[in-house]
Design a binder for these strands. Structure first.
Lengths: 339, 339
DNA sequence: CTGAAAGCGCTTACAG
DNA sequence: CTGAAAGCGCTTACAG
């Protein structure tokens, strides 16, 4: 591989001059510039990333710390990943994807060894053990997912509480009086999925405020079981006219369950979910839903991170940004049938 | 951040001695060793990855070049990614995930700048434009996916031809005489998905050899359309008793289509698919299938790559490894109903 | 058993 | 407008 020294020699200039031409950090006579560029071209010169990183203290790489949890829905996960890597690349950064089970350890490894200029934490849990590591390092980091204590951190997440309220509000406005909410399985909450009860609590509260009944039930994350869960739910609460889904497996399974029971939305049952449009398309889900916008969250997070990297300690305070939910109308809700 | 110089000073030894202790590449008196280790511990020393890479010419990072194609099924994609990153990490490597649309350009960037010690190419097309770049560099690389011309390259893929034969064979042995095969949409073939016709051709041939009828039809990659495609197929060929699926969307949609038509497997229709067990679980698919083993392919590919990195030009010839298909029996095939 | 020195390939103050 | 030199933080022949 050609080095900057080779380029300099071929162009007949000093290494520093060659370097300045490549980085463009100095005005240079057009003639010299051209000679250097031509030399670089003819040698197929590309700067050695490691050497450059050592000299500039910038790797132009960010770390993406993901956790591939069981029962996690793959499509959503992949969307976060593509959102982050895509945005990073557009802005000149590559992405190191790390998914070790021991996230705290992985984070420490990346930051201590200066492999990356910053990190994005995915799947942030309520009491995430990566946060102490992040707080202790001077490598900038941003979170996708709101932890219990976000103090001092930049956080991006969907506003789950507002989402819960919005779902209830929407059905209440249509005249529904009895609702059911299918949430994630309990072990998802147990491992730190606080978003589950953030949505749930807000929905309960809103229902209470409006004098509605709301039955909240956890559902399985896999199909054979979730189908039965849905049947059981509808058997147990025959007066329910509005169904809220905060469980992707439930959303995927519901069409066949409804088909089996001869139910149509919104004629017999109004349905509103909470998942991404991409997810809806993959599974061709006919239900209105609150968009979870994983790509947008990834993009926002990366932009913020690069700002932190570019302007370390610029005084702008850490910020928790909760994305306002948007309801994508797919026509699955309407007034309840008269009875 | 502490450097090796800091460690040396605190331990009262030279930098080289400190380095030798850290790398373990020289025998050392236990006393010195302990002093150095203690100094490193107290300073929280971790070697700077960039500096180490510059000195050793090893980054301990591999590049994973993925293409996020439209209509690609996310679950499968994520499995390849986790297979590669997981195996790499186990063996001491981190993974740089790159998914730019211009794969050839991305590959050139990674290899020219020596950001990685080797690369894994995912989604390899029949005439993949990344291959010339890979052949031109001395950075080792392996492919997941068989291209039209694999000469000189290490390739890992499922044996799609054998898979096609196996599916036909399996149903033929049960007594089926008329089969249908739902393949990927035409544009997947058009963009280089040679595996589609590798399976198809072999299936056709095997059917012909056994005197069976085999209707091959492309199916859409999304749900609203693929459901109609399946209905149309069953309407058009009422004598079909065995259905082969080489299309994940079709597999996901089939249960509800069969339900709608009052069909049960294997009573009314024998079904065998070609997808991963993970995929089957996510969608709770009740059909027997040929395992596509994305995690295993990822693992094999990384192991091979690291072998190439560790032993460059050791003379062992490049190898195309086609994984022998295995049929996972989920009880969806049986003898055709007597008519 | 250990150290002084060179070198990996860049960038960038410092000088002219 | 350009160059010689120092330095980034490691590793590793070379010497003793």
């Amino acid at each position: 591989m050609a080095t900057i020294g080779d380029v300099a020699r071929v162009a007949g200039v000093s290494r520093s001059t060659a370097s300045y031409v490549m980085t463009g950090r100095r005005t240079m006579s057009p003639a010299t510039q051209e000679r250097v560029r031509e030399a670089a071209r003819s040698l197929g010169y590309t700067p050695n990333a490691g050497a450059r990183a050592l000299a500039t203290k910038q790797t132009m790489v960010i770390g993406l710390l993901a956790q591939f949890l069981e029962d996690e829905f793959a499509p959503a996960m992949l969307q976060y990943i593509t959102g982050v890597t895509g945005t990073a690349r557009e802005l000149g950064y590559d992405t190191l994807l790390v998914s070790e089970p021991d996230g705290a350890h992985a984070l420490k490894r990346l930051t201590d060894s200066r492999m990356v200029d910053g990190v994005v934490l995915l799947n942030v849990a309520h009491d995430d053990d990566r946060l102490p590591v992040l707080r202790a390092t001077d490598v900038p980091g941003v979170l996708i997912g709101l932890p219990g204590d976000p103090s001092g951190l930049d956080v991006f997440d969907l506003d789950f509480a507002e989402s819960g309220r919005m779902m209830v509000e929407h059905l209440a406005a249509l005249g529904h009086r009895e609702l059911a909410l299918v949430t994630q399985p309990e072990h998802v909450v147990a491992r730190g999925g606080a978003y589950v009860w953030r949505l749930l609590d807000a929905a309960q509260e809103e229902a209470h405020r409006r004098g509605l009944r709301l039955h909240a039930v956890p559902g399985a994350s896999g199909q054979p079981q979730i189908g039965q869960d849905l049947h059981a739910l509808l058997d147990t609460h025959p007066a329910v006219t509005g169904l809220l889904l905060h469980n992707e497996a439930a959303a995927a399974a519901l069409p066949s369950v409804m088909y089996a029971r001869g139910l149509q939305a919104p004629r017999d049952l109004s349905v509103v979910g909470r998942y991404s449009d991409e997810f809806a398309r993959t599974f061709s889900l006919p239900f209105s839903s609150i968009e979870s916008a994983p790509d947008r969250l990834g993009q926002l997070a990366v932009r913020r991170l690069l700002h932190r990297i570019g302007a370390p300690g610029d005084g702008s305070p850490p910020q928790v940004l909760l994305l306002a939910p948007e309801l994508v109308d797919r026509g699955s809700t309407g007034a309840p049938a008269p009875r």
